[in-house]
Structure formats: structure tokens, C-alpha cells
Design a protein around this nucleic acid. Structure first.
Ligand SMILES: [Mn+2]
Ligand SMILES: [Mn+2]
Ligand SMILES: [Zn+2]
Ligand SMILES: [Zn+2]
Lengths: 138, 138
DNA sequence: TAATCACTTTATAATTATTCTAAACTATAG
DNA sequence: CTATAGTTTAGAATAATTATAAAGTGATTA
């Protein structure tokens, strides 16, 4: 559990002004012990339901991208019509449930180390991500 | 090297009528010894340059989706504004060059077998794909 | 061969996620 | 408090993709 004052400091320390809107979004995203995955659409729905004052869609986009740039959120690579974000910023992998269109974390220690035998001259690896698509049994 | 007649048969055997447009797209996609990755935008550019008669964008989309459904193309999961397709339909992985926005194949035997230690109750694995993001060295 | 019909192509409109714009607002340094 | 840079906002713009519906074509049948 974080406190509002913590978010204010966190934002200030990142060079982001702690506005009403950003604090509210912090509350929705980070004031929980569980990390989670969301789309902008999910988030605006949560905000619409939970928050008294409306936050404009442009602000939601701006804020999420600001938080991503500061490393408080990760963008997850799923080819889908919508971009997914993750409040879990550790190096980890994902299951993607094709039916539910939901991501499920697959922690780094739940996958044997991935050994890549090919190299690309002049390039270095920035990240290695596994995406496991799952469907209902039978 | 395929011949046009091969494509005609291939399409007929798939229940797709061998139209002028589909044969031309087959020629662009499959009449080569190397497989490759493309976006719809790439493909329409190639067609615009190489093909005498214009093929409408709607037909390009229709055809690519028809080919994908028949298993002649794979859709590649990159979070990007555009969908990537692959004429290499084998089980394999990818490098993604962030600067060039280009995919590079990483064949299955170039990655040590991936062992996933977590299971999702009631779900079975459909595919396991590794995406290695690369950037320029130094 | 000719008629028929389901399949296909096409121009164009619609949809939708995301980004842009520019004016109003606000946090904060001085 | 004042000035200023940063932020929010409604609404417009952009762009990939999908839908529509009319015209065209391939294949089947008589
Ligand atoms: Mn982003
Ligand atoms: Mn598709
Ligand atoms: Zn995650
Ligand atoms: Zn490939």
C-alpha cells in the first residue's frame, strides 16, 4: 500500500508535476499489491467507474506514456488492435489467453533460461520476451 | 521457383478461386526461394511497383487474410501500429530491429528448447514465440 | 455454349486506436 | 503574488483495418 504523499514524491522525483489527474491514475495503477495488465480502454473504464472527476482521454494517454518513459510501466508486445501495458516492470514473460484477450504473467524464473545461438552483426540484444498463446483445453 | 500453374492448383485445392489478383500476390509472396516479412503497406508498395495492373487495397487485405486462414502466411506478434506477416510458416522466432522496424528470423533450432514451468489450469499451449528486440551496438 | 450463381474485386465509407493542436488551466520557482 | 513552463482538455486529424454493396468473374450445369 502506497500513500498519496509517496506518489507526490515519486512524481516530483521523476520531474513530473503531481497533478490531480496523475495522482488519481497512480492510485488506480500502483495502489495495490498485485500488478496487472491493461489497455487504455480498460484504464479509462476503471477511471470512469472509480473516479469522481473525469479525466480526459488525452490525459490518460499522456500520463501512461509519461509513466512508461519513466519506467513505471511496460508496454507488452501482443499483436492486437490495442496496446497493452503492464504495471509489472520486471523482466518477465506472458501467457496470452486468446479467448479472453487477457495477459497472464510468466515470471522469469518460471522459464528455463533462454539461449539464443544466433547473433546479428552490429546489433545487441535489448530484451528477450516469450509469448505463450493459450487456448481452452479440449 | 514455382510456376503459375502450381499456384493455380494450390489455390484451387484450398477452395480459393485463382483470380488474376491472387495469382499476382502469390507471385510476389511465394515465387522466391527466400521467405520474408512484410506489412500490408510493404506489400501494396511492392505491388504498385512491380505489377502492371492495380490491385485494390481491399483485395490485398482480403487475400492476405484468406492466405493466413489457409496457413500460407503467419501473422507475427509485434506491438506496432502495423501488422506483420511472414511467408515462413514454420515454428520459429524473431529478432526485431527497433530502428529499422524489420523482423529477422530466428529459427527454432537456433534457440535452445524453451521450458515453461508454469501451467494455466484448463488451458493448453497453442504456441511459444520468442521476440528478441535488438538495437545497434555502442 | 449459355445461363446461372456463388465467389471475388473494388471504390468508398465506416470504424477505431492513437496522436495532434491549441487554448485554458495550474504547479512551482523566484 | 507573478511569471513561466508544464499540464489538461475538447476536439480535430491520422492511419490501419474492416464493412458495404455494387459490378465483375470463375466454375458448374444444362
Ligand atoms: Mn507507447
Ligand atoms: Mn488477421
Ligand atoms: Zn506482465
Ligand atoms: Zn519469420
Amino acid at each position: 500500500m502506497y500513500l498519496k504523499t509517496n506518489f507526490i514524491e515519486k512524481l516530483r522525483n521523476s520531474g513530473l508535476r503531481p497533478t490531480k489527474q496523475r495522482l488519481k491514475i497512480c492510485d488506480v495503477l500502483f495502489n495495490t499489491d498485485k500488478t496487472f495488465h491493461f489497455t487504455i480502454n480498460d484504464l479509462s473504464k476503471i477511471i470512469r467507474e472509480k473516479v469522481s472527476e473525469k479525466i480526459s482521454l488525452a490525459t490518460i494517454y499522456n500520463t501512461i506514456h509519461a509513466f512508461e518513459k519513466k519506467g513505471y510501466l511496460k508496454e507488452i508486445a501482443i499483436n492486437s488492435s490495442q496496446t497493452y501495458f503492464d504495471t509489472n516492470t520486471s523482466i518477465h514473460h506472458h501467457f496470452f489467453d486468446e479467448k479472453e484477450r487477457k495477459l497472464i504473467d510468466l515470471e522469469n524464473d518460471e522459464v528455463e533460461p533462454i539461449k539464443i545461438k544466433k547473433i546479428i552483426p552490429g546489433k545487441k540484444i535489448k530484451s528477450v520476451e516469450v509469448l505463450v498463446r493459450v487456448v481452452s483445453k479440449n
